[in-house]
């Protein structure tokens, strides 16, 4: 495919998107999905044509079709790496870190003093490049997935803590008073008023944490891992110039990240349907 065809295709796709964006269908669900997909496909076509027509060496940038072929050929390796990095490292760290932060938030929420002390510190730590502690934790917990999970725990803890504490402060004094007139105790108020009110914040924290969890698990593997895992494959793939395999791993990481984010967003929609930001 020549570069001109690709550019013409891209222009046609953009024109069609413009038509769709102006048409009466623009708020239809299918159109909302179709427009960005068409845009993405037209970019891939541009990439493919650029690589093929300028004869870019596959060592520099492989074409999307080459990456797809390699992806299909290496599914066993990719799955092994996925299990090691995502299911063992990132997911276990994510679950431990998020639930620890959630429980800590509920515990410190009872004391105004602790909240006032921890919130600024948590906010500060959440902005730090915590990823740098990866080598320390790898030397503490060994090369296998436990150290990756530990890095993930530390990375997701503070954003999750800060969001949950803020969410728990969300219920208004009026609402709390109403609960008191119902003779509700601490746990009833927590369960029926404050936790539901905190849900949008908690989900925000969970969303931030999904991305951080993948980043943490992959970076920690650069500092030592058994001979499997996405980070391991990427760093060795770059060294041995099997760039198409690296891109296949990147595709897996991208799909995993988007899917995890989508999953959290799905539950958010289900559980916080009452919130203004979720109403149609």
């Amino acid at each position: 495919m020549s570069m001109t065809t690709a550019i013409v295709f891209w222009l046609l796709a953009w024109g069609m998107n413009m038509q769709l964006a102006r048409s009466g269908w623009r708020d239809h669900r299918l159109v909302r999905i179709f427009v960005p997909v068409l845009f993405g496909v037209s970019l891939l076509v541009l990439w493919e044509a650029a690589v093929k027509s300028f004869n870019v060496s596959p060592v520099i940038l492989p074409a999307p079709t080459d990456i797809a072929t390699r992806f299909m050929a290496e599914t066993a390796t990719l799955w092994e790496d996925f299990v090691q990095t995502v299911l063992k490292g990132a997911l276990s760290g994510y679950l431990i870190g998020c639930s620890a932060a959630f429980l800590t938030a509920i515990a410190i929420d009872r004391s105004r003093f602790l909240t006032a002390g921890l919130l600024p510190i948590g906010n500060f730590v959440a902005a730090l490049p915590i990823i740098g502690i990866a080598p320390i934790l790898v030397s503490w917990f060994g090369f296998d997935w436990q150290s990756k999970a530990a890095v993930v725990v530390v990375m997701v803890f503070f954003p999750m803590l800060v969001n949950t504490v803020q969410g728990l402060a969300e219920a208004s004094a009026m609402q709390k008073d109403l609960m008191r007139t119902y003779a509700a105790g601490y746990f009833q108020t927590l369960l029926k008023l404050r936790l539901p009110a905190a849900m949008p914040f908690i989900f925000n924290g969970l969303k931030i944490a999904t991305t951080l969890a993948l980043i943490g698990a992959i970076v920690a593997e650069y500092f030592g891992s058994p001979t499997r895992g996405m980070g391991f494959r990427i760093s060795t793939g770059v060294g041995s110039l099997s760039i198409d395999l690296v891109w296949a791993e990147i595709a897996v990481a991208a799909l995993t990240g988007s899917a995890a984010y989508g999953l959290v967003a799905f539950f958010e929609k289900r559980l916080t349907f009452w919130h203004p930001s979720q109403r149609q």
């Binding site: 769709l20 991305t211 990240g257």
Partner: peptide
Amino acid sequence: RTMEMSVMPWAIISQTVPIVALAPMIIV
């Protein structure tokens, strides 16, 4: 509007991609 509909979803997706996976590639 076209930009919003076609670029905004990708901007969100771009943030769910762990950039560190791309980092060595960008350097190569």
